[in-house]
C-alpha cells in the first residue's frame, strides 16, 4: 500500500493510454512523456506500459507500507527517500515504512514514479489512465488527494540484473526546444508567407499548457479563407485557431476539432512537449515523414537495447 501524504500539484495515474475509442470521442490519455515513462518501467522490470504516477510541476509525498523497488524518470523534482537525496533515472528500494518526497520541478515539468508491479486500479475501457475531464480511469477519474491509498499490481515481468543507466540515456531538459514537424494535413491552407512565419518564428509556451493542449504565444499564423469542417486530430498536431496563436494537441485533447492543422510534431519529439515549461521557447523545424519514421525507429530500438542490458546485466 502506498499512502498519499501530499498529492503534489497535479498527480494522476497513467499508463500507455486508452486506445481504441477515439471513434466515440474518447481521447487516448496516458503518460505525456513516453520516453521517461517507458524507461521508468524498464528500471523496475515492469511491462512496457504498467501504470505509474505522473506528477506535474510539483511532486507529492508518499508513504510506503512495505518494501518495493521504485524508479523516477523525467523532470527533476528533488526527490528524497527518508530525507536523503535520490537520483532520477535509476532504481532504488523503498524500505517498509519509507517516505518518498518530491518538491518543485527544477528541470523539466513532468516526473514519473514507477513501482515494481505497477499501480493497481480497475482499468476503464482497457486502460488505467486517468482522464480528468470525463472523470474516468485512475483513482475515481481524478487527480490524487491526500489520504488516497494506492495498491501495487502484478505488471512486473523481468528479473533485473542491473539498473544503472549511463548519462548517454538521460535527456537534457533545456529551456529552448526545437521540435521537428511534418507539414500537413492542412498546411496548404496557409500561404507561403504564413508557412514561413510558422517555421521561422520562436514561440513561448504559455501558462496554459496542460494534458489537453500546449498553447503557444508568438507571431500569429493566419489561415486564408474558409472555416474548416471538424476532423480527427492526434497527439502532436499543431492547430491554428482564428486568432493565429498555435497550440499543440496533447493526449487528453478532443479527438476531433475544427481547426486547421498546419503540421504534426514527430513521435520521437513528443516527450519534449511534456517537459517544456511555461515560458520556455519552441521553434519548429520541418522534416520529411521518412526521416521522422527513422528517428522514431531509432528511439524504439533504444528501449530494446536498454531492456536487454537490464536483463543481461551488461552495461550499455
Amino acid at each position: 500500500m502506498i499512502v498519499v501524504i501530499r498529492p503534489g500539484n497535479f498527480t494522476t495515474i497513467q499508463d500507455s493510454g486508452r486506445w481504441g475509442y477515439q471513434t466515440w470521442g474518447m481521447p487516448i490519455s496516458g503518460c505525456l512523456d513516453p520516453y521517461a515513462a517507458q524507461v521508468a518501467n524498464l528500471l523496475v522490470g515492469n511491462k512496457k506500459y504498467a501504470a505509474m504516477l505522473e506528477m506535474t510541476d510539483e511532486g507529492g509525498v508518499f508513504h510506503f507500507d512495505y518494501s518495493v523497488m521504485a524508479a523516477i524518470a523525467g523532470a527533476d523534482m528533488q526527490a528524497t527517500l527518508n530525507g536523503r537525496s535520490l537520483h532520477n533515472w535509476q532504481s532504488f528500494i523503498v524500505p517498509a515504512g519509507g517516505t518518498l518526497a518530491f518538491g518543485k520541478a527544477v528541470s523539466g515539468r513532468r516526473s514519473y514514479l514507477a513501482v515494481q508491479g505497477g499501480i493497481e486500479v480497475a482499468p476503464v475501457m482497457g486502460s488505467r489512465s486517468t482522464y480528468v475531464a470525463a472523470g474516468i480511469g485512475g483513482l475515481d477519474g481524478r487527480i490524487l488527494m491526500a489520504g488516497d491509498m494506492l495498491e501495487i499490481g502484478n505488471d512486473a515481468q523481468v528479473y533485473l540484473q542491473t539498473t544503472d543507466l549511463s548519462e548517454f540515456w538521460v535527456p537534457k531538459y533545456r529551456h529552448a526546444w526545437k521540435l521537428n514537424v511534418i507539414l500537413g494535413p492542412q498546411a496548404d491552407l496557409f500561404n507561403a508567407a504564413n508557412q514561413k512565419k510558422f517555421l521561422s518564428s520562436t514561440y513561448k509556451v504559455s501558462s496554459i499548457a496542460d494534458r489537453m493542449a500546449c498553447e503557444l504565444e508568438g507571431p500569429a499564423v493566419i489561415l486564408q479563407g474558409r472555416e474548416l469542417v471538424s476532423d480527427a486530430t492526434g497527439w502532436g498536431a499543431v492547430e491554428i485557431p482564428a486568432h493565429g496563436q498555435p497550440f499543440i494537441v496533447m493526449p487528453d485533447h478532443g479527438t476531433t476539432r475544427g481547426f486547421a492543422k498546419i503540421g504534426y510534431v514527430i513521435q520521437a519529439n513528443l516527450y519534449k512537449l511534456a517537459q517544456a515549461m511555461p515560458g520556455d521557447t519552441i521553434s519548429f523545424v520541418e522534416i520529411d515523414t521518412d526521416t521522422a519514421i527513422d528517428l522514431y525507429k531509432l528511439q524504439q530500438a533504444d528501449y530494446q537495447t536498454l531492456a536487454k542490458s537490464f536483463r543481461t546485466g551488461q552495461m550499455c
Binding site: I182, G184, P185, A232, G234, A237, Y264, I266, Q267, T289
Partner: peptide
C-alpha cells in the same frame, strides 16, 4: 495526406 509519422488521413470531400 500525412498526419505526422504515425497517421494518415484519407479525405473524401470538403463539405458536410
Amino acid at each position: 495526406q500525412p498526419a505526422g509519422d504515425g497517421g494518415l488521413v484519407v479525405v473524401f470531400g470538403e463539405k458536410i
